[in-house]
């Protein structure tokens, strides 16, 4: 596995030079900045509530926009490598497909994960500086885990799409489709509609539960918003049947497993099909 680290390292170096990375880092850094400016934190004094609320808003926005960022940038750069013969050249060296694929995966993971985590911690540090006296440790830990989990699942899906679909345009289109469908199925309104159409409750709950975005939303909000006003009936149900601890396990672990499954299917396709 000597080349595994090499591929990961070079992928990181390459990303650090790419435009998408700066847009990406800028968006998440900017997001935090925006929240401060717009005064979310100025509600009363920056104390526990102010900081918690900042993080809550940050994670909710992250859950919506991080997936599409990961999907499009990853799919695009893999497709570009293939179409421009970069993949052909790099793979003409004696390097195993396993090292190449998983090296890329880890390198990519580092570049999508760290900017968001750094933004999160900058937010926390700023909150403390502004007079927060209590660290919301539980929240910070959980949200870090959720961000990790989001990165894994959408990278997995992106690698899967990239190995399965060779055409650049189709791959990008498919990424958008995945994102839209997942978004549609967290929409409380849609679930409401399905209920009106007399679909069995179990089906609705199953569909919602399978959706990693729903898992993240529930995980991010359930523990910290006692009223659960924005989140809908599925969350109530899950909280009720699973309990807090299991709910968190589900929100963090399930998407990681799902993402690794997709990544693994992608790897299998990468090995079994034409590389170019």
């Amino acid at each position: 596995m000597k080349n595994f680290g090499l591929v990961a390292y070079l992928d990181i170096k390459e990303s650090l030079r790419a435009k998408w990375f700066y847009v990406y880092a800028f968006v998440f850094g900017g997001l935090m900045g925006l929240f401060f400016i717009s005064g979310i934190t100025d509600s009363v004094v920056m104390g526990f509530t102010g900081l918690s609320r900042l993080l809550l808003v940050f994670i909710q926005v992250t859950i919506i926009i991080l997936p599409i960022f990961i999907l499009t940038t990853t799919v695009k750069s893999i497709a570009a490598d293939r179409e421009s013969n970069v993949l052909e050249y790099m793979l003409s060296f004696p390097i195993s497909l396993k090292e190449y694929y998983w090296g890329k995966f880890i390198g990519r993971f580092a570049t999508v994960f760290f900017p968001v985590i750094v933004a999160l911690f900058i937010g926390v540090a700023w909150g403390l500086y502004k007079g927060g006296n209590q660290m919301p440790w539980a929240m910070i830990t959980l949200y870090s885990a959720l961000i990790f989990s989001i990165c894994v699942v959408f990278l997995g899906i992106a690698f899967f799409i990239s190995t399965l679909v060779k055409s650049h345009d189709v791959a990008i289109g498919l990424s958008f489709a995945v994102w839209i469908v997942l978004l549609a199925f967290i929409d409380v309104a849609l679930i409401g509609l399905m209920m009106q159409n007399r679909m069995p409750d179990e089906l609705i709950i199953t569909i919602a539960m399978l959706n990693p975005l729903e898992a993240f939303r529930i995980g991010a909000i359930a523990l910290f918003d006692p009223e659960l006003t924005v989140i809908g009936p599925v969350a109530y149900y899950l909280l009720d049947t699973l309990g807090h601890a299991m709910l968190i396990v589900y929100a963090v672990i399930y998407p990681i497993v799902l993402g690794m499954l997709f990544a693994f299917f992608g790897y299998t396709a990468f090995k079994k099909r034409d590389l170019l």
């Binding site: 390459e14 790419a18 970069v86 052909e88 050249y89 790099m90 003409s92 004696p94 390097i95």
Partner: peptide
Amino acid sequence: LKNISFIPQLPPPVKL
């Protein structure tokens, strides 16, 4: 591949 050197038809735009 240990024993083959390959140069592709078009120089690949490697970003490294």
